[in-house]
């Protein structure tokens, strides 16, 4: 996409180019100030912080991280979040790649109707079926279990995943699959051994997008899970942040513990992550 013609360039040079760069650097500093402040403040004692929230501390105090990790039970809720995310993403990838394969490569009665059904999911906000889902989960005793988050996160992830994977299949000729069919392979073998490996790039994009979505999901566990035992990181941190309102630096330390690994993962896989988030959010 990003074809660079060597003989042309669009960069502004000279004074104007320098001015633009200076403006951008200043904007970036303002932009990153909150994050920087979080890191610095999380390594200070509470009393020291409250006296001078802006001062660059002369001595750093790293005890906050240990304390926050224990008090917010970050290790435990990390495992809950991991379970929710892993199961949801597995469901989305398996179900959506099978469905997308059938919508693109196979023909059967009702196919186009079923495909158009998923367009509904692209338009509808989660809030439009939240109440009905809440009542249904309550009646069936799914409420307050991990399934009450896994099932909706998976179902909501399906439409975009199906759309992306189907569009990918549609853009490729089916000659490989056809010759396999002539060789006598059955349709499931074709799906598993030929189509799925071809689609690995777009499936990686889907995995990235849905992993971030599931990991960061807040509204569903907020509504569905009240029991402390089953809360993922997001809502357990919410409870923590409202409970210990006095210990500001502990809160910031908890945020830092959550944010740091995410930043590291982001800077390692940033191309894949940027592609995943934009592709997933664009929807069409």
């Amino acid at each position: 996409m990003n074809k660079k013609h060597k003989s042309y360039n669009r960069e502004f040079t000279g004074v104007f180019g320098k001015a633009l760069r200076i403006f951008l650097v200043l904007a970036l500093m303002v932009y990153l100030l909150p994050i920087l402040w979080m890191y610095v403040s999380s390594a200070r004692t509470n009393a020291d912080f409250i006296n001078a929230p802006l001062k660059i501390p002369s001595r750093l105090y790293f005890g906050n991280y240990v304390k926050a990790f224990k008090m917010a039970k970050i290790g435990y809720h990390f495992i809950i979040s991991t379970i929710i995310t892993t199961v949801s993403v597995l469901i989305i990838v398996t179900f959506s790649s099978m469905a997308a394969f059938s919508f693109s490569r196979l023909r059967y009665k009702g196919r186009d109707f079923l495909y158009s059904l998923f367009f509904l999911g692209l338009i509808l906000p989660t809030q439009s079926f939240l109440v009905g889902m809440f009542v249904m989960f309550r009646v069936t005793h799914i409420l307050n279990t991990l399934w009450s988050v896994i099932l909706p996160v998976s179902a909501i992830g399906l439409p975009i995943a199906i759309l992306l994977i189907k569009a990918f299949f549609d853009s490729l000729p089916s000659s490989l699959e056809e010759s396999a069919l002539i060789e006598g392979a059955n349709v499931f073998q074709i799906f598993w051994f030929i189509s799925l490996p071809i689609a690995n790039a777009i499936i990686a994009t889907v995995i990235v997008f849905d992993t971030i979505n599931a990991w960061n999901e807040f509204m569903l566990p907020f509504v569905m899970i009240q029991s402390e035992r089953f809360k993922p990181l997001t809502t357990s941190l919410y409870v923590f942040s409202t409970k210990h309102s006095a210990k500001l630096t502990l809160k910031l330390a908890a945020l830092t513990i959550i944010a740091t690994p995410m930043f590291i993962v982001y800077f390692i896989f940033q191309n894949q992550i940027q592609k995943g988030i934009t592709a997933g959010a664009l929807k069409d």
Binding site: A99, S104, R105, L106, Y108, K109, D170, S174, E177, L181
Partner: peptide, 14 residues
């Protein structure tokens, strides 16, 4: 364009 096979039981994929 890219259809490879037709059979109503394929609905199981979706």
């Amino acid at each position: 364009i890219n259809m490879i096979a037709k059979k109503n039981s394929y609905i199981l994929f979706a």
